[in-house]
């Protein structure tokens, strides 16, 4: 289980070259449990416009985010009172 998790983590890093991956112990939305509410620690999309767009939806540091369901390539979350479908890249960019 532990190993699988690590592997998963590695592929995620390789795919997105996300800098935040280097900091160990950071959980992204992909590691979250469905039905649980988390507090957003950091948003790291490497794209200022995207960051501020997410901000305007109410998705920013310190705000709660709830995972409703998780698929291989996407997940459904609740931000504020709206449901959104996020793709894999975006889910990985949200650190909780």
């Amino acid at each position: 289980m532990e190993l699988a998790y690590a592997l998963n983590k590695n592929t995620a890093c390789a795919e997105t070259r996300n800098d935040s991956c280097h900091a160990a112990g950071n959980k992204t939305l992909l590691d979250a449990e469905p039905g649980q509410t988390y507090i957003i620690k950091e948003i790291n999309t490497d794209d200022d416009d995207m960051n501020s767009f997410l901000f305007r939806l109410g998705c920013y540091q310190g705000e709660p985010i709830t995972l409703i369901s998780k698929k291989k390539k996407s997940c459904i979350v609740v931000i504020k009172d709206g449901r959104y479908n996020l793709d894999q890249m975006l889910s990985e960019a949200i650190i909780i």
Binding site: D47, M50, R83, Y84, N85, L86, D87, L90
Partner: peptide, 9 residues
């Protein structure tokens, strides 16, 4: 290229 997708349901 990074292409994000977000869609309100």
């Amino acid at each position: 290229r990074k292409s994000f997708f977000i869609m309100e349901l």
